[in-house]
Simulated assay, not measured.
Amino acid sequence: MKYKINIIIFSLISFLSFGQEKNYTELDVSIPTESVTIKGTLLKPYSEKKTSLIILIPGSGPTDRDGNNSMLKNNSLKYLAEGLIAHNISTFRFDKSVLSYSKGDTQKIDSLIFDVFIDEAKTIINYFKKTEAYSKIIVAGHSQGSLVGIIASKNNADGFISLAGAGRTIDEVLIEQIEKQAPILKDETIKILTELKKGNTVNEFNPMLISLFNKQVQPFLMSWIKYNPQTELKKLTIPILIIQGTKDIQVSNLDAELLHRANKNSQLKIIKNMNHLFKEIKGDLSENMGSYSNPNLPIMKELIAIIVTFINEIE
């Protein structure tokens, strides 16, 4: 009897392994830009027909193609790409360019501005357009990547998706965050941002704000502040999908609504219990924060379903 049971178990394992065999190719792709060579991963179905391609633009900080950085690993963008490829939608996700800089590239790091990210995104879009291998090219930007994607998509993409993207200028967002986390620093934050908006650097400020406003970061903030997401979104004439989660502690529903109002071609989808990293959160802030460093927690299936429906509508 034991022998027969082992045979059955072995057969079941073999069947499951066969059923989980990948039906897509996974390729490392390097794309030269004026600033640096962008490195990423392309997932493409085994199909003779052309499929839609979604270019996933990561959020702020030194974020890699999977949505991770050296401190926090959550695999948010990796799971998103894998979820989409299961519906025969190709994806390209990439490492932020700053991850390609060496420690000796101080000049590049010091001169980095927001426009560099926009130019890199445009180059990536044009790279895939020239291949003529895809039926549609859609840009999906997460968090900071939403604004990058909005601007890069103009006259370049067939559709745009905002994933937890801010609807206000970065100075407004920073002031709101400081007010919530350290109200005592709000007035000084406003003064610093006012000077940066004028194009003036600030040398002296409360050391508690050093991570936000150190000299290296200030030129980047100056270039970022000048872009208003609502103004830029109004310029798009392509289908737009705006997605926001109710458990997002970094971007509010208000931001999503402001983006939606800015362009009549947009759809707004609010996903209950989804946080900034597309994970389902049913508990408190502690659970939410814990998800930022949990690479095994899957993203919400509802997010995939909403994106797939959007892609099918514009095919």
Rank of each mutant, 00 (worst) to 15 (best):
S146N: 03
Y227Q: 00
S47L: 09
P207A: 10
G141P: 11
A81E: 01
Q230A: 13
E280D: 12
S252W: 13
S90M: 01
Q107T: 12
P229G: 13
I109D: 12
A164I: 03
L16T: 07
G40R: 08
K78I: 03
K180Q: 15
L56C: 01
L163H: 07
N312L: 03
L77W: 02
E120V: 03
I281G: 00
K78M: 06
G141R: 02
S30D: 13
P45S: 04
T309D: 14
Y227F: 07
A81W: 00
M208L: 06
G290Q: 05
A262L: 15
H87R: 03
L147D: 03
E302T: 10
L16C: 10
E120Y: 02
E21H: 10
D105C: 04
A140L: 11
D64V: 05
L16R: 09
E179W: 08
D95I: 09
L43D: 10
I55H: 00
N294F: 09
T169F: 09
I85E: 10
N253F: 11
I7W: 11
I210S: 11
N88K: 07
L285F: 11
T41M: 05
S266H: 12
L297Q: 06
N155T: 09
I109A: 00
F310R: 02
A152L: 13
A121W: 02
N88H: 04
